[in-house]
Design a binder for these strands. Structure first.
Lengths: 184, 184
DNA sequence: CGGTAAATTGATCTCCATCAAAGATAGTGG
DNA sequence: CCACTATCTTTGATGGAGATCAATTTACCG
């Protein structure tokens, strides 16, 4: 099965045999869940709704039949899958090269853009996930996430009240992601 | 274009506008390069041969035509793409949750398995990439990679001479990846 | 209202990055 | 064949970002 999110908010996570666990992504309206199972039919990760949500479930077999009949759909599916691969590479870069503040800035900017694309305010939104889930996704501990939020607030870049975030200086957030030459 | 590696060894890397750089993977015989460009036709990363190599280039359009005609091929392509997504999630887990020794152990084990699958010795092989490239892939600095190699050697787990690695205790390497309960 | 989960904040420690220098290797040309 | 150079690797010393441990505080919900 593949699931298209109609409304709501999901988290995706991977669990290894040895107990290692990590949030691998968050999905909102219009995004697909379960691409990892195409072809093999076996999913390697779980998805959990973080609020009341609606999805549209599509069986793999049906999807593959449709795509062979409709070339446009096939191309569309390929585009979505390759976009997922590119997105994962972006997360790998984040996890491999960024420091805590850069990671959180990238995270907030990404959420902001996705809310904007859906007609919600890009500067004022409600986080559906906990600090721990954010930390897991960003490769940080929940305490570090909390501290970094506080620090951003001290700097006057954002205003946080628990799960409600208001971005007051998008420029500064963007600037955090533009690494200066010679920076560690 | 998609490239199927016939012989040789490649590294793949992503370069961001701000100069951030990371090796996103290594490919050997039988593996595909360029899956990120399917659908959009635009590649977001580079591939560099680390030794004399041969590839088979397949244009996207031709590939998509063939897959709509041959259902088995379509399913095969989907399987390969989703496997790439799953692989990326594995790297995300590595980058997000593992310490240096675990990362290098996972890296060596992965190489070992891939050499075995191709009929080469899984316990005795030649690294084609530099310490810096390994470090970039694993989210570590080259010095840390070198030190960790040395440490593994002191422990009697492997024997390293520059780019030649001999695994003398696979069990211990596997054990490093089986995180004990309560471990940091 | 209690009771539980989530978040904040502080103090300390650890792993890895950074800085620095020497040693090994392969490739080049005399 | 051997010096010569550029690149890669190893190893040591030091420092810093974030993890860990610990204690409140705040929100959430039956």
């Amino acid at each position: 099965m593949i699931y298209a999110v109609k409304t709501g908010f999901f988290k995706n996570d991977a669990l290894l045999e040895d107990g290692r666990y990590q949030v691998t992504g968050f999905q909102m309206a219009g995004e697909l869940i379960g691409l990892d199972g195409i072809g093999s039919g076996i999913h390697t990760c779980n998805s959990i709704a973080l609020e009341d949500s609606e999805v549209c479930a599509v069986p793999f077999t049906q999807l593959e039949q449709l795509t062979s009949e409709i070339p446009t759909l096939q191309r569309h599916l390929h585009r979505i899958m390759s976009r997922e691969i590119v997105r994962d590479h972006g997360v790998m870069l984040l996890l491999g090269t960024m420091r805590a503040e850069e990671r959180l800035a990238a995270f907030l900017l990404n959420l902001s853009q996705r809310f904007l694309a859906r007609g919600y305010s890009p500067l004022d939104f409600h986080l559906r996930m906990t600090r721990e889930e954010i930390g897991s996704y960003l490769g940080l501990k929940l305490e570090t996430v909390s501290r970094t939020f506080s620090h951003f607030q001290e700097l006057g870049i954002i205003s946080v009240q628990h799960k409600h975030v208001t971005i007051t200086d998008v420029g500064r957030i963007r600037a955090m992601l533009t690494r200066q030459a010679g920076h560690p």
